[in-house]
Design a protein around this nucleic acid. Structure first.
Lengths: 235, 235
DNA sequence: TCAAAGACTAAACAGCTGTTCAGCCGGGAT
DNA sequence: ATCCCGGCTGAACAGCTGTTTAGTCTTTGA
């Protein structure tokens, strides 16, 4: 999205190379030497600039987080959100490194991953609340829990993109596997469920509600009673 | 689920220890020495039995895959599925290692992860087809794509369990973060969406359908036209 | 102009990694 | 009894890891 040329500060070049390698190989497998080599620099300089590999990772965390935060700023503005998606579909490679990096952060437990997930949930909750107020989204009992479910569903594409593209036979952009073709495959089925639901009646929902009502919420340990036939194989 | 005592073969003890450590720390971070130590054995013996660390991993893949395959065998039988869930809720720790291991396999690209994901999709597709035939699940245009969406949503709990438990304030069983309390939080919101849908009308679905229809599916590269306001921020 | 500071490198260091090797031990077959 | 073979160990090896160090080059500032 920004200047792809090599007019960047050496420090920034190292950071960007690290984001790419961390996203592709993970924080453990990506080595300081590989980052240095990708940035055209000696390993010592990486440490000189960032103190340690952990420091380099923190710098990458801060940078990716700041970048995605400015993008998520225009959350309740539907027009800019659409433009953002369109922008991504036109230039998928531009965001590839950040996407992969966030995927790694969400998997490999880290404070940055926590922060990103919380931001997505918060943002989703705002969108849902606005949608409810505008009448485009059904009124739900618990907005926060619903936001968590929706966010989890959305982020599953990020976490499982490689598998999704593979089983659907879509082209698989490296390394995250998320491309326009994948979104084209998933959009209608997902929106169909979000629009018309998945079950024909409220049988499963009622059963689960009953089961949860009579389920004594013991604060720790196993559940004493059969919770019933909640979530039969799916969900 | 089987004998937890130490009447196992040394080879099996090493394998089980490896499954635990691989699931907790990932395949790279978990070392042969750590596995050996956890199994009460010398590092050389691990190599002696499995040839290499990669061979050990393959053995773990085979074992976890076989174990989950036998469990998924009774897929279309709702009673046994319910019993399986109940069994898990009563003895969550029993499955913790396998769950974590599968999570790692799905994230860290591997043939075992691919096989597991495909099995889940296949199984989900069968369940959906049966549900449609029985009238409990709405008839959908594309059963396979719908199955992929449902499977992706379901597996997101596995991939993001730690985050879900954290933001919901639920107890977080190590290391995967999936416990009864988390399921208790998510069941009703998820089933509510699956039962009543999420949007109030088909506005978003229709818009996406129109956008996809007029979208020339170029087989490679960027999309030439604005795909429209599909999936506004969520989904 | 000179000195201080920072960017940068090449080499080395210590620690950890997977793996190998020589050999010990115990139990079954000959 | 002897042989031997597989389970098993402890030590060692080579390679890679993050990091340090000594030193060079370039820029900057008074």
């Amino acid at each position: 999205m920004r200047s792809n040329a090599e007019d960047l500060t050496t420090r920034a070049r190292i950071r960007d190379a690290a984001i790419g390698l961390f996203g592709r190989d993970g924080f453990t497998r990506a080595t300081v030497r590989a980052v240095a080599s990708a940035a055209g620099v000696s390993p010592g300089l990486v440490i000189h600039h960032f103190g340690s590999k952990a420091g380099l990772r923190e710098a990458c965390d801060r940078h990716v987080l700041a970048q995605t935060a400015t993008q998520g700023r225009e959350k309740t503005d539907p027009g800019s959100t659409r433009q953002l998606i369109q922008d991504y579909l036109n230039h998928p490679d531009q965001y590839a490194n950040e996407i992969s990096y966030i995927r790694q952060s969400l998997g490999d437990e880290s404070a940055a991953g926590d922060a990103f997930f919380d931001a997505v949930v918060r943002q989703t909750q705002d969108i849902i609340q606005d949608g409810i107020d505008a009448g485009t989204i059904r009124k739900v009992d618990d907005v926060r829990s619903t936001a968590v479910v929706i966010a989890s569903n959305s982020l599953s594409i990020l976490m499982l993109g490689r598998h999704l593209s593979r089983t659907l036979g879509a082209v698989t952009p490296e390394p995250h596997g998320i491309g326009p073709e994948l979104l084209r495959h998933l959009t209608l089925p997902a929106l169909d469920i979000y629009t018309h639901g998945f079950y024909t009646d409220s049988r499963f929902l009622d059963a689960a509600r009953d089961a949860l009502r009579q389920d004594t919420p013991t604060k720790e340990g196993s559940m004493p009673r059969d919770p019933g036939n909640r979530r039969r194989g799916v969900a």
